[in-house]
Amino acid sequence: MQFETESFPKSIDNSRLGQLMREVLYALVPGTLLMIWFFGWGVISNLFLAILFSLSLEAIMLKLRKRPLRPFLTDYSAVITGWLLALSIPAFAPWWLILIGSFFAIVIAKQLYGGLGYNPFNPAMVGYVVLLVSFPVEMVNWFAPVNNSMASIGFTDMLQLVFTGMPDTPEWDAMTMATPLDTLKIGLGLDKPLAELTQGKSFGVLAGAGWEWISLGYLCGGLWMIYRKIISWHIPLTLLATLALISAIFWGYDASTHSSPLFHLLAGGTMLGAFFIATDPVSASTTPWGKIFYAAGIAFFIYLIRVWGSGYPDGVGFAVLIMNMAVPLIDYYTRPKVFGEARE
């Protein structure tokens, strides 16, 4: 059975596409700035390398596929992929990690499937998940979020971390910290009470220390995109509402072992995923009802993987890829009726 796949960006011309993508980048700025505030130079090195590698690999693949370079490089799609990948991986990631991530995102997930508009999976999430599965040690090396962290780990430290890796000394080790979701996963696995875990230093006022503000930054950018009509409300709202609903049910059932809906909304990659990753027009569902099923499915899998998934504290990347696979089926069953078509 052959499903028709809708692809969004083919239908609009290139300058309009570039403008849309540029506005997505503007919307990423508040969250990114907050992330730089808490994680410092490492976020800048991630962004620089990921965007550099993504653009270079995109150019090489376009050359190999004998496609024109200019329109495809200036539509900002590779920049967004690199940018999202950079925000998903730990700050100060070594250069080769970013290179492999960008390779799988741009070459395998995007260009080998036919380039922009034809990729069934979100490229940035393919890159992220490949890294998560392949390099678990590097991918959990998160530094503790500290205020104005650019002052505490300097530019030269960044160069050392990125190009030679982290020295195996206690001073550096002390600067890394389990993320809030990690803490919960390990702690609850050991039957520790939730109330005790959330007193730990990785937790802040609303959710995870540092992370809560970064998430709110993404939320602001996301709301601005909805206001500017760059994305529709269907996916982010359904995703956040479903996640809140599921977590509220379990929280109401037993608040001593299940975190609050607020925590789930502001932890890990929920906000980034809801507004910037799940809404990717190419790999997401295209019909209004389809978007709602798609987003609800993502929320369901995020909760499932976060709470019961073995080994992985967050599930946004996996959830998005699983639902990407279901998109042709969802679109098939939710196609809007053509005007004048008879009711069956």
Binding site: I100, I108, L112, V130, V133, S134, F135, P136
Partner: peptide
């Protein structure tokens, strides 16, 4: 021990065979 773990997992087989076919 910095091996690319994905290659040894099932997705690695699919991607590898896909590349050979290509």
């Amino acid at each position: 021990d910095k091996g690319f773990l994905l290659a040894a997992l099932p997705p690695g087989a699919f991607i590898g065979l896909g590349l050979l076919l290509a």
